[in-house]
Nucleic acid binder design. Structure first.
Length: 474
RNA sequence: GCGGCCGUAGCUCAGUAGGUAGAGCACCCGGUUGUGGUCCGGGAUGUCGCCGGUUCGAGUCCGGUCGGUCGCCCCA
């Protein structure tokens, strides 16, 4: 639970190779593109130039790109456990795993997520492929999942289509605590039902997983209606009128939002705006009858499920496709971010993607944030159980075979590969985190047994080789 | 995209008024020719992120650059 240990590994850049300080300028550097044979042409306009002669890009750059990181052990065990726990607890509610491509046609996001959103507007990793098509590294997964459902006619088979996913997403923002350019999400989507009961199920599944994971989430809930003059569309007019009338009291950034996306003024952190928004008309007071009763039904289901929530009429979400139910899970330990995840209903998404009307609801949780927010695991994956210590030529020749036999019986085993002394092997065994040292030498081989040492207590016993597996079984 | 702070050994960090680098932990060897984690003795380690400037001399001052980190915007 020490949140500190969840950090991705800081990237250092060991740029030793061929620095100008290098006393042998002619020293061969096999893959160095800046090698003498191909001098860098000078820039035409002296402005932006030769990055840094001391740090040529390429093989000498051992640091991953900004905002990405290598997940090393032991942190990698925690992540894997968190992901496994998520997929298991989604599966138990009937959500089957789905995998979609890491990149999609850019239109999937432009049309699905919405061109007006921040995500599509300025955070996407978009690039042309060799055929000139515009592709984008996925910034979220709801739109791709809907694309896949429509593309494979999954909704023709059984409704609702219940799917779960886990994997990396990409957004080009300035990294900070809990926010990376490549980050991981786990989530579910329930497609094809308008029932408020499924809204409650989805929310409960997310809430339960977070609690099982050791995160203590706060659930914020709201309904943002649907696009209809009698509902959100009409409300937006009221809101805009109100904002315009109070324009002089708003912060400059928020004045711009009036025309772009008036709902977002509720997200403002400017104290003057917050004061104004306190008296602003609320979406929940302007819902149409259908949306209102849907919202009430969702709440009554949640109460029956004993999922506690806080109504937040100011909660709006960043992606354009949301309708009706909107929710967010927040938690501590996340620095300046406090959202571990969020989701909502998206009844218009399928049509935006060119399909038929197909309602849906889902959520995405930030795995990195779950880890930061105190993910604790009972999962014992990690070091293997036994380390084979070999003494003498005969044993050394057999060590790998002995470890292999243990493994075949389901017992994790490791051994020395550096010709270490007995002492060195014992040390390595301790360092590996194994509980048992299985010591084999000439004496043991002669008597067909092994010396088994419990590294946690230091106690030692002799065990017949035939009994070893059953002795080590948990 | 914008702003603050930071960049010295594998790790955490110290470095005094500019005078050619240090601690703890980790690591290696030995005390124990078949036994780790304790103890004792010994040992190795850095082009002080990079480029350039000031200076007789720069880890230390100045500029640039790259990177990290935290925050803003926004979001997971």
């Amino acid at each position: 639970m020490p949140a500190e240990s969840t950090e991705r590994v800081p990237r250092k850049r060991p740029d030793q190779t061929g620095g100008p300080g290098s006393s042998q300028p002619a020293e061969p550097r096999p893959h160095d593109p800046t090698d003498a044979a191909a001098p860098i042409p000078p820039a035409e306009d002296g402005t932006e130039r030769a990055p840094n002669p001391a740090e040529p890009p390429g093989p000498t750059e051992l640091a991953p790109p900004r905002g990405t990181g290598d997940i090393l052990p032991p942190e990698s065990w925690r992540r894997q456990a968190a992901t496994r726990l998520a997929m298991d607890s989604f599966a138990i509610a009937g959500y089957a795993p789905i995998e979609t491509p890491i990149f999609e046609h850019t239109e999937v996001f432009e049309r699905g997520v919405g061109a007006g959103s921040e995500v599509v507007g300025k955070e996407m990793y978009t690039f042309p492929d060799r055929g000139g098509r515009s592709l984008t590294l996925r910034p979220e997964l709801t739109a791709p999942v809907m694309r896949a459902v429509l593309g494979h006619n999954l909704h023709r088979a059984r409704l609702p289509v219940k799917l779960a996913y886990a994997g990396p997403m990409f957004r080009q923002e300035r990294p900070q605590k809990g926010r990376y350019r490549q980050f991981s999400q786990v989530g579910i989507e329930a497609i094809g039902s308008m029932s408020p009961a499924i809204d409650a199920e989805v929310i409960e599944v997310g809430d339960r997983y977070l609690r099982e994971a050791g995160v203590e989430p706060t659930l914020l809930l709201n309904s943002i209606g649907h696009l209809d003059p009698g509902c959100r569309t009409g409300y937006l007019e009221h809101l805009t009128e109100y904002l315009v009338a109070n324009q002089s009291s708003l912060a400059p950034v928020d004045i711009e939002r009036i025309s772009l996306n008036p709902l977002r003024t509720f997200d403002s952190k400017e104290s003057r705006t917050i004061e104004v928004m306190r008296r602003a008309p609320l979406i929940t007071d302007h819902l149409c009858d259908d949306c209102r009763s849907h919202f009430e039904a969702v709440q009554s289901h949640l109460m029956k499920l004993e999922v506690s929530y806080t109504l937040d009429p100011h909660l709006v979400r960043g992606l354009d496709y949301y309708t009706r139910t909107a929710f967010e899970f927040t938690a501590g330990g996340l620095g300046s971010q406090n959202a571990v995840g969020g989701g909502g209903r998206y009844d218009g998404l399928a049509e935006s993607l060119g399909g038929q009307h197909l309602p849906g609801i889902g959520f995405a949780l930030g795995l990195d944030r779950i880890l930061l927010s105190g993910f604790g695991s009972k999962d014992q994956s990690g070091p293997v159980a036994a380390y084979v210590v070999a003494i003498g030529t005969a044993a050394v020749e057999q060590a790998l075979a002995i470890a292999t036999r243990l493994r075949a019986a389901g017992i994790g085993a490791d051994l020395d590969f550096l010709d270490r002394s007995v002492k060195g092997q014992m040390k390595d065994a301790a360092r590996s985190g194994c509980r048992w040292a299985v010591i084999v030498g000439d004496e043991e081989i002669a008597r067909n047994n092994v010396t088994l040492k419990d590294l946690s207590t230091g106690e030692q016993e002799t065990v017949a080789f035939a009994e070893l597996v059953s002795r080590l079984e948990p």
